[in-house]
Amino acid sequence: MKTTKFILITFLTIYSFSSSAQSKTSTVPAVDVKNLNGTVFNTSDIKNDGKPVIINFWATWCSPCKRELNNIAEMYDDWVEETGVKLVAISIDDTRNMAKVAPYVNGKGWEYDVYLDPNGDFKRALGVNNVPHTFLVDGSGKIVWQHNSYSEGDEYELLELVKKLNAGEKIN
C-alpha cells in the first residue's frame, strides 16, 4: 500500500508540474493504426492543412456510434464546405468484426477518413474508455475538446465548436 500511495502521489506531482508549465492542451499521440486495406498508418500523420480535425472512436457493434456518424454524414458535405473540417473515424472493431468495417463505411457512403485500431492501441494512448468518444483537434494539432457518448443533437454543438475554432475563439 505504501508503494501504491507513493507512486500515485509522485505521478500527481509530475502531473501538476506538467499542467502548470503546460497551459496548452495535449497533441495527438503517434500510434500505428491501419488503413482499410490493411496497410500501416501513423496517427501523427492526421492533418488537415491547418483546419480543425474531428477524431471519432466508433465500432460496427455500437448503435449510438453509428447514429452519430450517420447523422453527421447527412450534413458532412455542408460542414466541409462551410468550415473545412475533416472527420477521422477510428474503428475499434477487433478481428471478429474488422472485415465488416469497409463494407459498412462504403455501404453507408461515408466520406470520412476511416482507420482501424483492432487491438485498441490508439484508443489506449488517448485514454478512451468507451465508444463513442469524440476529440476535436485545432489547426495546430492540439486536442482542445472531447466528448464521451452520443445523444441526438450533439452534432450541432460539435459544429458550433468547429466554427469557434475557425473564428479564432477559445474553447473551454
Binding site: T13, I14, Y15, F17, S18, S19, A21, Q22, K24, S26, T27, L126, G127, V128, N129
Partner: peptide, 24 residues
Amino acid sequence: AINNNLNAQSSVDQILNRGEIRGN
C-alpha cells in the same frame, strides 16, 4: 521532473512543453 525544475526556466518550459500526461 526535478531536473527540469533546476534548469533555467526557458529550458524547463522547453522540456515540459513537449511532455504530456493523459489518462482516464
